[in-house]
Every structure is written in C-alpha cells, then in structure tokens.
Design a protein around this nucleic acid. Sequence first.
DNA 1: CTGTTAGCGCTTTCAA
DNA 2: TTGAAAGCGCTAACAG
Lengths: 358, 358
Amino acid sequence: MPKPTSMDVARLAGVSIATVSHVVNKTRFVSPETEQKVLEAIKALSYRPNALARSLVTNITRKIGLVISDISNPFFTAAVRGIEDVFLTSHYNVILNNTDEIPQREDDCLRLLASQQIDGLIIAPTGTRNENLLAMAESGIPIVQLDRRSPDLMAPMVGVNNEDGAYQAIRYLISLGHERIACLIHYDAITTQHDRLQGWERALQEAGLPVDRELVIRADPHFYGIQSDAQHSVPIVRPTSHRPGMRSAYEVLQVLLRSPRRPSALFVTSNQLTLGALYAIRECGLACPEDISLISFDDHDWAPLFSPPLTVLSQPSYRLGQTAAQLLMKMINGETVVDPIPQRVDLIKRASCAAPGR
Amino acid sequence: MPKPTSMDVARLAGVSIATVSHVVNKTRFVSPETEQKVLEAIKALSYRPNALARSLVTNITRKIGLVISDISNPFFTAAVRGIEDVFLTSHYNVILNNTDEIPQREDDCLRLLASQQIDGLIIAPTGTRNENLLAMAESGIPIVQLDRRSPDLMAPMVGVNNEDGAYQAIRYLISLGHERIACLIHYDAITTQHDRLQGWERALQEAGLPVDRELVIRADPHFYGIQSDAQHSVPIVRPTSHRPGMRSAYEVLQVLLRSPRRPSALFVTSNQLTLGALYAIRECGLACPEDISLISFDDHDWAPLFSPPLTVLSQPSYRLGQTAAQLLMKMINGETVVDPIPQRVDLIKRASCAAPGR
DNA sequence: CTGTTAGCGCTTTCAA
DNA sequence: TTGAAAGCGCTAACAG
C-alpha cells in the first residue's frame, strides 16, 4: 500500500491539507477539536510527513554532509561520534563519506552531497584545491573544516596546533639524548602533516641539530595491519583505497631501519602510520624503546595496553567533533561565528621512548 | 545568488525544461546540437539538478539509512567502511546513526530516517522489538540486518555463526586445562550476545563441566578506556551513551577477579568489553596469561601488538559490510535474494591464553 | 526530435 | 478559526 499523504489525513479528518500541515508543524492556532481529529487521523494512518516535499518548499533539509578521510582512523571515529551526537539531538541527519585522501574521491563525494541539498558541511579536506568545494562555499552553504584546511577555502577550522605538538615531541626526544630522529609522514598536501613536519624541523634547528632530509620518509597511510589468519606478517592494503605508486609505512620504514645510519628515534605524524611502523620495527627484529624510540600522533584507549605502552601526542578528538558540529549549527542558524582557536595537543609519556644507545 | 534551476538552463539554452531534463538524464535522444547548447548552459550556470525535486517525483532517493550501535566499535568501523565503499561506487548516500544499544535512541533514528524517504536500510538492531522498524518493513522498504536480528523482523541477516565461535573458544580453553571459565557479556537482548553465551554453555556441558551462573557477568559496553591525561586509571564513560543502572566491564569485572573463587580464564563476548577487561585485570595486579587467560570476540589490526598479543575470535567485518550492502542493492533493484548463510568465525591463537595454574 | 503540462507532497500566502 | 490555491524543481506521459 502506498504511503499516506497529508491529503489522506485531511480527508479522513474532514479538514483541509493546510490544517493538517499546521497541526503537524504547530504553526498556527487550530481549535482543540479539529486538532484532535487530525491527530487521530495521523495515528490511524500512521502518517509521516514526507521530508522531501517539505524540504522542496522550505529549502531546508535537516541534512548535513560529513566528509572525512577514513572512518577507520580512530581520530575520525571519535570525532564523528562527537558530530553525530550533537546532530542526533538536533534532529539532523548526517551523511558520511570517506575520501581516503584521494582528491578524486573527495570530488565525487562533494558532487553527490551538493545535489542532495545539504544544509551544511563538515569536511576534513584532502588538501588539494577543489573547485566544487569552493563553489559550495560561494553559494553560501555553511562549511566548517575539521582537522585541516583546504586551499583558498574561507571557512572556520576546528583543530589543534599541530606544529606545536610536533615541536613538543621532538623536544622531548632531544631531551632524552636523541640526535637522529626520523619523521614518518604521509602527504604534505594535508595541512596537519605539513605543520607537524615543520614542528619537527623547528625543534631540530633550535637544538642545533642537523635537519637531515633523508630522515623524512613518506608513506601511504592505508595500511590495515597484517593478515590475521596467517601465521606470518602479510601487510594488508585495502584495494579500493590504495594510492598507486605510494608504498605503505610498513614497507618503506623497513628500508630505513635496515640502513647503517638508522635513526635512534621515530616520530610518526599519523595514527594510521603508527601501526605500520610498529610492525616494521618488529619485522626488523628491533626492540622499542631499546633500539628505537617511538612517539606518534593520536592517543587511543588501547595505547596504554600496547607492548610497549605508547608515548603519544593526544588531541581531544571527540570534543573537536562536537565543537565543529556546534559551530556548524550556529552557522546554519545564521549566527555569526568567530574562527575558533587551535586546541593544544598533549604529550603523554608512556614507555615507548627511552635514552638512545643500546 | 539563488541556485540555478532547470528553468534557468532551459532559458539560456533556448530549449524546454523537458529537453534539459533529458540531456541531464540521457533519457531520450536529443540532437547533438541542442545537447551541446544545453551542456554549455549547464556549465555556464554551474547547474546541479536538485535531487530533492527529482526524488519527489521518481520516488527514489539514492539514500540509504545505516543504523548501528556505535561507530567506535572496531567491528562496526570496518563494516561501515565496507558498506560505504559499495554505496559510494553506486552513487548512493548513506546516512549514519548510532544507537548505543539504547532502544529509545534506535527509535529516534528510525523515525528520522523514515521521514527522509530512504531507499533502503541496513541495521544492527538493539534487539528490542521496534514497531517503527516493523512498520518500515511492512511498507516495503528493503531492509538488511547486520550482525544481529530484531524480534519479529523478517529481513535477511548478514553475520557470523556466533554460537559456534564461542563454542570453539571455550573448547580451546578447556583443552588448555581450564575449568572455571567466566563469560563477560553485555545485553542478552542482542542476539549475538545471546548466541555467544549459548556457545559457552554448550562447550561446558559437552565437557561435563559445571555451568556456574556466577561466572556470567554482564556489563555496560560503553567503556572508553582510561583518562588519558591522568597518571592513574580513571574509567571514562561517555555521558550521552551510558545506560543508567549498568556498570562498566572495568568495574564489574574487578569484583569477580578479587573474589576467592576467581576464574582461571575469561571469555569476552565483545570488542568493547575487552578493553575494560584488560584494564580491570591490570588494575587487580593480575598477569595475563599467567594468572588469567583471555579470549575475546573480534580481531583488530592492533591485537597482535598488545601485551600480551591477544587470542581472539575473528569475523570478516569489512566483508560482512560489503555483503550487506550488496544484498541491499539487489533488494532495491527488485532482485530476489536468498537469506545468506552465516559466516564462520576464526579462532586466532596468540599469547593471551595459557594453561591454568601459576 | 522537442515542447506542454500534469503532478510528486508539502508549506504558505491570501482570503474568507 | 479555517480553506483554496500557488508554487518548490523536477520527471514523464502525451502531443506534435
């Protein structure tokens, strides 16, 4: 049977569709008796207003788009929860999309979302200039950037001070006595990655240590651990999300770790790289922190349970998501917003860092 | 400036809106010249068809609803990726919702989705009978159940054989010599949880071991690790998602572990409980596997890196998501589908289980 | 090969 | 206190 419409309700209640609309939306006074009749008709037919039709006339959809790189990244998992939680209470629907840091895919998502007439957008952009995104901003859709910035996009950004976080980490390693500190990074185009590399460099320079470019190694973040059902380690790269020509942290790091001029410490700029790094260290028969110290971006609930417990840089990911969502809500409601100040990242010392030298 | 409509395009190209519609949708032959003119007008105005208006007439929205318990649960994270990946390639939008296993919240989500006129729904139901869900099924919306079943809902279910998985785990523990094997579980209403408990019981019975109900302990799954910025362990329970009256695994397990009749092994039926369990074990000053063996549901990329590496029951979560999505696509396309057979779960032996006795 | 027109289900003036 | 009717932007007969 077809879904009931406001017409059906009106007929059953013996009123006009205008009245039905008004009792549904409480948008003008209706006498208690008529209201009662309408309510009963609604219940009897189990009528639900068609949000599509409503949106078509009101031009508000109560849908927001959420574009992130990868929901598997624990940072985004938590942020997304923060976002979902505020939008559920506001009765907004959120449409989730993963770009895997692939600009083409980001563009696809954006195109899809644009046609869906979303009321707002939260995006962790890939870092490549995107005309579609710029056009959406131009056309007045409220946008907030999460975690990073997209070139030329003027929209508030909710995130942390990445440069400072990295700086803290490297300072700490230096204070422990390290001099050769490698930096494992993915794409420079992503502003967070870029900023973290800057922090690495600044700390080194301030300490009068050489900035050796060979110690900066780039890898594909799409490493999903080892094959679970095998007894030996086989790195998994999910086919759909692999960037051609870029090798995983797991592979690329092993080269450095086996070289004669091996670093004594490793700074990992991203969550997803950490896993690959840990497996690579293990694969090379190295011990952490005895042979190599490790400090990496993003804390997790399970980081203290690792062997060794991980020393990390922590960001308030759930909170960042909440903040971004609240900001977007304000923009949607036409309030003026101020650009939020970057949050501080915390260095959490656990056991994966030690003084160098065996 | 207002968004351009097909009317604007038609005017600029000097054709009718019907022609515009037809070149946009390639739905009837249009002479190359007119087509060219229309295409140019579209580009010039950067016109994007309004999906709302289209959906209103075609009655297809290219949106599907996705209702899970919690995106933070790694099982769902992976499954959601699987789902997203197939829908992105099919140009469908997915609307994500977390229920936190709270029936009321599930109902809210469903209501919101119903009004959005989704083309299909993938749901991991809370296990409490839901009239709204039943009504959606009744009205003909294609639904596939993921991981669990909802009471009275006739819809294909994509998942694993949980009873058998649990059975395997307990058999293994018994073969190691364990006789007092506790089972940490959350809500019985969730069919997976129920089935896993059944498996525990069957294995015990078959081995002629007593089925001690005191060894079954229930806890709230909403344990999000310890407070990261503190030096000592403070369990975090996210306020929005806490079920009143139910205590966390972290708290509840400590009571059992400190009792004189402490079990020698622990079977954890869920991902999210595992973290709490691990912290509880550590908090009680116990060593795993020396003092207590641990085996738990769901593998992760990082499980091998734990201290100790975790022995787990593994499900193909990404694959399950994919399968569910493909199944839903088929249903949306009107194909007849067969109820999928439950996948097998794999026991992956790592180091968190050992023979009992210190 | 292309245009006219009647809706899709709802909100919202305007009028009564 | 309520109803009639004009759209919102699009698709899909039906005409030509």
